[in-house]
């Protein structure tokens, strides 16, 4: 540690890991992880969200929820913005997750073709 700049670099490196703990995020991603969701392949979806959000350096938290009662649409993901508006994505897979992170969370553009209304 030689200068204030060194310290700042070290801080920025670890800061992301701790953001998780202050409950401040722009988007909240909720993945349906009931038995049905897990069977339908929710885990890779969850992991894809976590990894892509980290890669793109975005402020979003990823949590899971139990069965929502729409098992035929699983894997199912809900995204809430700061105002609490909800978008529901259905029949998810890891590739769709990457796209949604880039567009919806990164630029605020909802990926209409994957939402529940599109089916």
């Amino acid at each position: 540690m030689k200068s204030l700049a060194d310290l700042k670099a070290l801080r920025d490196q670890t800061k992301k890991r701790l953001d998780l703990r202050d409950g401040e995020s722009d988007y909240r991603v909720v993945v349906g992880m009931g038995t049905c969701g897990i069977a339908a392949g929710a885990r890779p979806v969850l992991n894809a969200f976590v990894e892509e959000i980290a890669k793109e350096n975005l402020k979003a938290s990823v949590t899971q929820i139990g069965c929502i009662g729409m098992c035929s649409y699983e894997p199912l993901v809900e995204i809430y913005d700061k105002e609490g508006n909800k978008t529901t994505y259905v029949h998810m897979d890891a590739n769709k997750a990457v796209e949604i992170v880039k567009k919806h969370i990164g630029q605020g553009i909802v990926c209409e073709n994957y939402t529940i209304g599109a089916k």
Binding site: S3, L4, L7, K8, L10, R11, T14, K15, R17, L18
Partner: peptide, 12 residues
Amino acid sequence: EYIARDGYMALG
């Protein structure tokens, strides 16, 4: 983790 929460910035 302390540094991540702006630790030692004040000293710097």
